[in-house]
Lab assay of single mutants.
Amino acid sequence: KPRTPFTTSQLLALERKFRQKQYLSIAERAEFSSSLNLTETQVKIWFQNRRAKAKR
């Protein structure tokens, strides 16, 4: 499956949310993903990858 090209504004929103909170609840993820026009899976995986990056 092809890589999702996130827009700059989506990335800024994702990073801002990640700084507030590294783990989103299912409800938060649902609301946040629809506000960004992304799927919940895209947001879930982005947060997983971002947490992995933060550990490195």
Score class of each variant (00 low, 15 high):
S33H: 04
K1R: 04
R16H: 14
Q48H: 12
S34K: 08
A13W: 00
R29N: 15
Q20N: 06
P5T: 13
K55V: 11
S33F: 06
K44N: 13
R50Y: 01
T41Y: 11
F6T: 01
T8K: 02
L11N: 09
L12E: 15
V43A: 02
A54N: 12
P5H: 08
L12P: 01
E15F: 00
T4R: 03
K21M: 07
L38S: 04
A27D: 13
T7C: 08
T8A: 13
L12N: 15
Q10P: 00
K44R: 09
A30Q: 14
R29S: 14
P5C: 09
I45W: 07
L12C: 10
R3C: 12
T4W: 05
N49S: 10
K21G: 13
N37D: 14
R56W: 10
V43L: 05
R29T: 15
S9R: 07
A13P: 00
L14A: 01
K1E: 08
L38G: 02
L14K: 01
N37R: 08
E40G: 04
K55Y: 12
F6N: 04
I26M: 13
L38V: 09
S9D: 06
A30F: 09
V43E: 03
F18Q: 00
V43H: 01
S34W: 07
Y23S: 12
Q48T: 06
K44T: 15
P2C: 00
Q22I: 09
E28F: 00
E40H: 01
E15G: 01
F47K: 02
R29C: 15
L14Y: 04
I45C: 13
A30P: 04
E15S: 00
N49M: 07
L11P: 00
I45A: 10
L24I: 10
T8N: 12
A54R: 05
I45N: 13
I26D: 15
F6P: 01
R16Y: 10
L36V: 09
F32T: 06
S25P: 11
K44H: 11
E15R: 00
T4V: 07
I26R: 05
K1D: 05
F18C: 00
R51A: 11
R50L: 04
K53Y: 14
F47T: 03
E31N: 03
E28L: 03
E15N: 11
Y23W: 10
A30L: 13
K17R: 10
N49F: 05
K17Q: 07
P5G: 06
R3M: 14
K53R: 09
E28R: 01
T41G: 10
Q10L: 04
R50C: 01
L12S: 06
